[in-house]
């Protein structure tokens, strides 16, 4: 079980401190989701949508069930969307007709059958996963990479893989190094070599793999399914440093 799942479990069991920490650390995520739904920038303390999204995230902590077989963040994103849609429907009835279908299946309304909700969740999650993978493939292309390159450079040995995952995490967590990667589409091999005490040759050999994983680690909010699927030691969220 990942660290976030443990925290959710503790928060559900009444640990307020953990709950507050979860809410606090995921504020950038909440804001990002809300902005993407509202299609405009939102600011804390100014826009009601952010408050509604925060409440929805809190509600997601309470209602999250591991049987849904989706990552918590994916579930939370769905709840935030639902709550904001409810808000929009209340605010503007004319928009509600176009969103009725989505809303009717949101499943968080009292009285909705759980089975229908689970089915809806699964369908939505499947669609989101596909979209996420397409997005990931597109982003790789911007670095001149393809999924085949990741297969080719993926280390077979577990220890090597562990070492490269650690390097990818370092690259994703260090803004300066990641900016270098984004700007030049090149691995900051020299800096990483010094930081992780690893030969440049190894870094160059597994360049595609390191970049591919660093993109996932750097944007866990965008690649919710990918990042949650990797059973890795939880790293500090890097989303806030963007």
């Amino acid at each position: 079980m990942g660290l976030i799942n443990e925290q959710i479990l503790q928060a559900k069991n009444g640990n307020l401190q953990v709950r507050n920490r979860l809410l606090e650390t995921h504020q950038p995520f909440i804001r990002k989701i809300a902005c993407s739904i509202c299609k405009r920038p939102l600011n804390w303390g100014e826009d009601d949508e952010l408050s509604i999204a925060l409440l929805a995230f809190n509600e997601a902590i309470d209602n999250f069930d591991f049987k849904y077989r989706v990552p918590f963040l994916a579930y939370a994103r769905l709840v935030i969307k639902s709550r904001l849609i409810d808000f929009f429907r209340r605010e503007a009835r004319e928009r509600a007709s176009s969103l009725a279908a989505f809303d009717s299946e949101a499943g968080l309304l009292p009285g909705e059958e759980e089975q229908a909700w689970v089915k809806f969740m699964e369908e939505t999650a499947a669609r989101e996963r596909e979209e996420e993978l397409l997005q990931y493939e597109e982003e790789l292309k911007r670095y001149g990479l393809e999924l085949n390159d990741l297969v080719r450079t993926s280390p077979k040995h577990r220890d090597t893989r562990g070492l490269l995952l650690k390097i990818a995490r370092t690259l994703a967590g260090d803004n300066e190094l990641f900016q270098y990667l984004q700007a030049y589409k090149r691995l900051p091999a020299q800096a990483l070599s010094k930081l992780e005490k690893i030969s440049r040759k190894t870094l160059e050999k597994h360049r595609a793999y390191i970049i591919g994983l660093a993109l996932i680690f750097h944007k866990p909010d965008e690649y919710i399914y990918l990042s949650s699927y990797l059973k890795l030691p939880q790293a500090p969220t890097s989303g806030g440093r963007n």
Binding site: L150, V151, S154, R158, Y209, L230
Partner: peptide, 9 residues
């Protein structure tokens, strides 16, 4: 192509 939980493509 698959991604295994331990990070192998």
């Amino acid at each position: 192509i698959i991604l295994t939980p331990d990070g192998e493509f």
